[in-house]
């Protein structure tokens, strides 16, 4: 810009259709670039600034999102994903987004998000008995996931599935139990024939799954019930380039292999395995 001139600024309302279009595109972009945790939906647009650029306009947005029940690897379209309710201990995301609008087309140039669960006090306000989110590295959580995955593989006639990440966990007081959700991926081993799981490798054409399980403590033992949904295989795609936009809705981190990116518009899950109840 010439000295003494400030860039042209355009006032836009947060609920303006143009702002919403930009925000929804940003949310789609986020969901197609995260590989951990859950997909998010747009909840509120906090702020919008529009500046003139030599080749178009620059949009700077602050948006609030809410976690859905669809895992990031789940190809279900976002419109079909349910928002995680307050009673399930909701999680919100706060994102700073920048987009360019050139020739009427938006493109995302920068995204930075952080996510945080609702406070325990807020959950208690709507439900006294609702279990709160538990740390994913809690020994009871890890044990429940291991038991559930072992139970699933024991009943599975196909590939051996490996843990990708633990995505959610809740400790339930009565009956004493642990509810967990985790992502899995198919390997080149056959589930019934595995001797050393460490020697199994993820398939080149990735096949992910998402499991929900409950491990209930009983006198003299425990029961585990697990249901896994295995998604359609995903074609091999190149890894993201290092100079690409910085994107992420930080979710819970697990000790697992990082999956490769998946296209955002894959067809809905085509295969459901389970429930396997042991």
């Amino acid at each position: 810009l010439p000295n003494g001139l400030s860039p042209a600024y355009r006032q836009l309302n947060c609920d303006d259709p143009e702002t919403e279009q930009a925000a929804l595109l940003a949310v789609d972009y986020i969901n197609s670039h995260i590989h951990q945790g859950y997909k998010h939906v747009l909840n509120q647009i906090d702020k919008v600034q529009v500046w003139a650029q030599p080749t178009g306009e620059s949009f700077k947005l602050e948006i609030d999102t809410l976690e859905t029940t669809c895992h990031a690897l789940d190809p279900t379209p976002l419109a079909n994903c349910s928002v995680r309710q307050l009673t399930q201990h909701a999680v919100e995301g706060d994102c700073d987004v920048r987009l360019l609008k050139q020739n009427g087309q938006f493109s995302v140039s920068f995204v930075k998000c952080k996510s945080s669960p609702d406070s325990a006090e807020d959950v208690r306000k709507v439900c006294l008995d609702c279990p709160l989110l538990a740390p994913l590295n809690d020994t009871r959580v890890v044990h429940a996931v291991e038991a559930a995955l072992a139970a699933f593989n024991a009943q599975n006639n196909g590939s051996y599935f490996q843990l990708v990440e633990i995505s959610r966990a809740q400790l339930v007081p009565l009956p004493v139990s642990v509810h967990v959700e985790f992502a899995v991926a198919a390997t080149d081993c056959v589930a019934k024939e595995v001797i050393d799981p460490a020697k199994c490798n993820l398939l080149a054409e990735k096949q992910y799954g998402f499991c929900k399980a409950t491990l209930t403590e009983k006198v003299g033992g425990e029961d585990v019930a697990v249901t896994c949904t295995v998604f359609q295989t995903q074609p091999v795609v190149p890894l993201p380039q290092p100079d690409g936009p910085d994107v992420g809705v930080p979710g819970p981190v697990a000790d697992a292999a990082t999956p490769e990116p998946s296209p955002a518009d894959l067809p809905v899950a085509s295969l459901v395995v389970g429930p396997v109840v042991v």
Partner: peptide
């Protein structure tokens, strides 16, 4: 016709540009 400039301004809808509407719930 009598104009009441003071009251006319107060009677109109207040447009708050930001933040926008909450689609689900606020936490």
């Amino acid at each position: 016709k009598v104009a009441h400039p003071n009251t006319a301004a107060a009677a109109g809808p207040v447009v708050r540009p930001c933040p926008g509407r909450i689609r689900y719930f606020k936490i």
